[in-house]
Structures are given as C-alpha cells and as structure tokens.
Amino acid sequence: MKDFNRLKEECLREIADCGIEIGQVKSWTINSRAMSRWGQCRKEVDGTFSIQISDRLLEDDRITEKACKETIIHEILHTCKGCMTHQGKWKTYADMMNLRYGYNIKRITRGEEKGVENYKPKQMAVKYIMTCGGCGATIYRKRSSKFTRNYRNYSCTRCGAVAWSRKTVK
C-alpha cells in the first residue's frame, strides 16, 4: 500500500513550487465505497474543501505513485479560486503541472491510463430498477431515496410521463 500522507505532501509542495495558490482543505478521506471515480473534491458551506481519494489508487500495486499523484493534484486544483469545473483556470493549472512534472492530469482518466490493463470499475449492487411507463427509460439505484419511495410523484425527464414502475432486486 502506498503512503498517502507522503504523496499528498509531495503534491502540495509541487503545486506551491508552481506558484499556484490553493484553497483550505478541511478533510482528506480514503474512500472505499466509490464505484467509478478516482477522487472527489467537495466545497463545504464554510468555504473549505473536502477531498476523497479512492482506496483502489493506494492499494493496487499496478497503479504507480505518479498516477496516484496525478489524481491527488487533480483534486487539489479544484480548491483553487474559480477551479471547481475542468475548464479555464483549472485547465491552465493542470497544463502547468503536466508541463513542469510530466504528469497527465486531465478531466477523466481510464484505468488503462493508470497502468491497469483491462480495468473494470467496481460493480454497483443495484437494489431498485425504476422504469418509465411512457418511454421505457430505466434508472438504477442502489439505495432507498425519496425517488425510490415516492416514484409515483415524479415525472420522467425524457417524456414527461408520470408512470414509473419499480422493481426491487434482492
């Protein structure tokens, strides 16, 4: 398993060396539940940020430390002012890091690009399958929510019909 704290500190130092000012990160979490993402940056109500990194990056020996750092830096760059999207300043900063350190920081990275051949994200355990009676659109949910409990009150965004049916998978 890779040393997350060491990698995080290296990333913070490299970003500072490029003269990029980051926002305040309130919490760092290793996420073992994420199904299809490598990381996530969330802006909190108080203006600080919470960053989650997938445990798969740290535990899979096929994924290099450089690939881990690319994801960590990707998420840290979202804390910069005006950088919550993958455009404008965020893209400029990502390009700066790529040029200076030889990274491949971009919007989306597939498993193969992380060094994992034939990589498949964790499969989601679906519990609810919602089907629109109007157009046949299908929505999958793994947890109970307002929508799965009160589906008869929701209209379809595709056709506007209020005709959902629900199937519960055991």
Rank of each mutant, 00 (worst) to 15 (best):
D60M: 10
T92G: 06
A125G: 04
P121V: 10
S145N: 02
T85F: 04
R149D: 01
T157P: 11
I72P: 08
S50P: 00
G23V: 03
G19E: 02
T85L: 07
L58V: 13
K122A: 15
C132R: 01
S54F: 07
N31S: 15
C156Q: 02
G134W: 01
T168V: 15
Q123I: 12
I105D: 06
R56Y: 14
G115K: 03
Y154F: 15
K8N: 11
K8R: 15
G23M: 06
I139P: 00
M1K: 11
S155H: 10
C135F: 00
C132G: 01
I73G: 05
I30M: 10
Y140A: 12
L7P: 05
T168A: 07
T29H: 11
G88Y: 01
D46K: 09
T71K: 05
K26M: 09
H86M: 05
L99G: 13
A94W: 05
R166W: 00
A67F: 03
S27T: 15
V25S: 04
R107Q: 12
K66L: 10
E44F: 04
K8F: 14
A67N: 06
G133C: 07
W38T: 08
I51H: 04
D46P: 08
Y151L: 02
R166Q: 11
Q24F: 13
M124I: 15
T157L: 10
S32N: 13
I72L: 11
D55W: 08
F147K: 01
S145I: 01
W90N: 02
V25I: 13
C68Y: 05
K2Q: 07
I30L: 14
G39F: 07
G88S: 08
T71R: 04
G39D: 03
K91A: 15
K8G: 04
S165L: 03
Y128V: 08
E44G: 01
R100C: 09
E70M: 04
I73M: 12
G102K: 09
R149Y: 00
D55Y: 07
C156F: 04
Y140G: 03
R100S: 05
I20K: 02
L99S: 14
Q24A: 11
E9R: 13
L58H: 09
K167S: 12
R158M: 11
T109C: 11
A125M: 09
R149H: 03
N153Q: 14
A125E: 12
C80F: 05
H74F: 04
Q52D: 14
N118D: 15
E59F: 08
C135K: 03
R42C: 10
K43C: 12
D17Y: 03
R141L: 11
N153R: 12
Y154T: 00
I51V: 14
R149F: 00
M96L: 15
S54C: 13
N150P: 01
G47M: 06
I53R: 07
R13P: 00
M96Q: 15
K69A: 06
T85G: 09
I139Y: 14
W38P: 06
M96A: 13
V45W: 08
R143T: 11
C18K: 09
G39M: 07
G82W: 00
L57H: 08
K89H: 03
V25C: 09
I63K: 02
G39T: 07
R100Q: 13
Y119T: 04
I129E: 10
C132Y: 00
M96R: 13
